[in-house]
Every structure is written in C-alpha cells, then in structure tokens.
C-alpha cells in the first residue's frame, strides 16, 4: 500500500505539473520553469554531494557549459544532437575534474569546484575574444516556453527517479557508507574513487543538460550571463534547506526558496545578496541537516 502510494503520488503530481502550462499565464509559466530548473539542479547536486559530503560549488560551471554549448551549436546542428553534445561535454568535464581531485581528500575537490566556473568563464571569454572575435551569441531556436518547461520537468523527474533507483542499488549503499566513514568503506571493499566519480559524472551531466535546456530562454548569451555564481549558491542552499540526503529534500527546498528569491530579486535587488548570505548562514546554524530531518527530530522528541 505504502509502496504503491509512494509511486502513485509523485506520478499524479507529475501529470498535474505537465498539464499546468495549458492554464498558466506566461508569467506563471516562467515561475514554473524556474522551479522545475532549480528542483532539477538541487536534486542533481544532492545526488552527489548529499551523501558524500563533497560540497560542489561548481553547479554553474556545468550549467553554464550546457547553455554555452547550445549558444555555439544551435545554428549548425539539430536540437537533439546539440543536447547530446552538451551532455557529452559536461560528462567529459566532470571526468577530468573528478579524476584529478576525487581520489584526494574532499577539500581539494571543494577548492577545485570553487574556482571552476571562474576558470571556464575566463577561458571562453579569451577564446571568443581572441579566436572567434565575437563576445556574445544569439540562440534562435524554435522552442516555446512550454516546450522548455516540459523538457525541464522531464529532466527533473528523471533526476529524482534516478536518485531513488540508485539509493536502492549497490551504488547508493556505497555512497551512504562513504558519507559515514571513508576508511570503513575502503576496508569493506568499496572502490572509493570509482563510486564518487560515477555519481559525480552522472550529476554533472544532468546539470549540464539543465543548462542546455534552459538556454533558449536567454536568446542572447555571453559568458558573464550564463556563468552567474548565484546559481551555484542557490542550488547548494536549496538542497541543504530541504535536506540533501533525502530523496525529496532538494525539491522541497527548491520550490519555496525559488519563489522567495524571485520576490527578493525583484523587490529588493540591492540587498538581495545580503539577505541570501544571511539566510545561508542561518540554514547552516539552525537547520544543518535540513527541514525534513528537523521535523523528524521534533516528532521524535514529542513521542519521547
């Protein structure tokens, strides 16, 4: 009963969400798309960072890479091929980053991810200025806002489904062991670097695809637009707020926070980063394991 319900409820919600654009206004559709994007990003981020506690600060490095790939290729290749190329580039980038940092202590990974988006932005800017001679590109794709929303919704559903599936496989168990104690994990026969690498590449590919799917909304793309560090920041705080090691935690954090941030950035554009920073610090201090874990603790206390 419980099992069928845990499958039926999300499916029903998915159908409802997929039908929503038929009645939604353009503004509401924009909000829905934003929510779907951040649910996808936060869930994909948590897939890797939630259990391993390797804090990735590089979300926008992959997201921006996806968007920029579409900007470069949208006129020369058919759309599905462009998406595939973006996915491959994201996976390749993740492989390079992962191979060079994930066999070392977590701090090296954090540092690398911290500067990665800056690096990619600098490299692309240099390349565009010196080699192609143009900074800034246009995306002219025959895709409606609805089409983008449906794609993002599908990617988000896939991400959450993949997370659920992985959690019931060997890989998911390995991730949880690594999160608790890497030494025990290694001595139990878990190949640490391989497990981390597989999941990091999966998560990064999803994030890259999210960037590629979202990119037509921009129309005009340049490195400083698509590599906006706020995206990395928001993704981390959303996943943390909801609970990064729960299946629905990131989604639960992403939806309300996205709406709050939308409101803040339109009504308080100047103080927006300050409020964000304060909120972030508050989450770390007050709800270090996320809202879901906090609610559970309250319940247990009431029982006891």
């Amino acid at each position: 009963m419980r099992k069928t319900l845990s499958l039926a409820l999300p499916l029903a919600a998915l159908v409802l969400l997929a039908a929503a654009p038929l009645v939604a206004s353009a503004y509401q559709l924009g909000l829905l798309l934003g929510m779907a994007t951040y649910v996808t990003l936060a869930s994909a981020w948590a897939l890797f960072s939630g259990h391993t506690r390797y804090i990735s600060l590089a979300t926008v490095a992959f997201y921006g890479t996806g968007a920029y790939t579409v900007a470069v290729l949208n006129e020369s290749l058919p759309y599905p091929v462009v998406l595939a190329v973006a996915g491959v580039i994201g996976a390749g980038l993740a492989l390079v980053v992962g191979l060079s940092t994930l066999r070392l202590a977590g701090i090296y990974f954090v540092i690398f991810s911290f500067g990665l988006s800056e690096l990619i932005r600098e490299l692309i800017t240099w390349y565009e200025v010196n080699v192609t001679g143009t900074l800034g590109r246009y995306i002219f794709l025959d895709i409606t806002a609805r089409g983008i929303y449906w794609q993002m919704l599908a990617l988000g559903a896939f991400t959450i489904g993949l997370t659920a599936w992985i959690h019931r496989r060997r890989l998911g168990l390995a991730l949880r062991v690594i999160g608790d104690d890497e030494t025990v994990a290694a001595h139990s026969g878990i190949h640490l670097a391989r497990v981390k690498l597989i999941v990091f590449v999966l998560a990064s590919t999803i994030i890259t695809l999210a960037g590629a799917i979202a990119s037509p909304r921009w129309v005009y793309v340049e490195p400083s637009i698509v590599f906006n560090p706020t995206v990395s920041f928001l993704t981390v705080i959303m996943a943390l707020l909801g609970g990064a090691n729960r299946l629905w935690g990131p989604a639960l954090g992403a939806v309300p926070l996205f709406l709050v941030f939308e409101w803040l950035s339109s009504d308080f554009p100047d103080t927006y980063p300050i409020i964000l920073g304060l909120l972030f610090i508050a989450v770390v201090f007050v709800l270090p394991n996320g809202v879901l874990a906090g609610i559970e603790r309250l319940r247990q206390r009431r029982k006891a």
Partner: peptide, 25 residues
C-alpha cells in the same frame, strides 16, 4: 569530527555572499 570542514565551508560560503552584497551596495 569531520563535520567542521563541511560546516565551515558552507558558513563561509554564505559569508562570502553577505560581504559581497554589502560591498556592492
């Protein structure tokens, strides 16, 4: 415990945006 590393990274990441916001303002 090893938690300090994660906690300090996250807290100072928040501080980064806080200070940046104040400086921008």
């Amino acid at each position: 415990s090893g938690r300090l590393e994660v906690d300090s990274i996250l807290a100072t990441f928040g501080l980064l945006f806080l200070i940046q916001g104040v400086l921008l303002l």
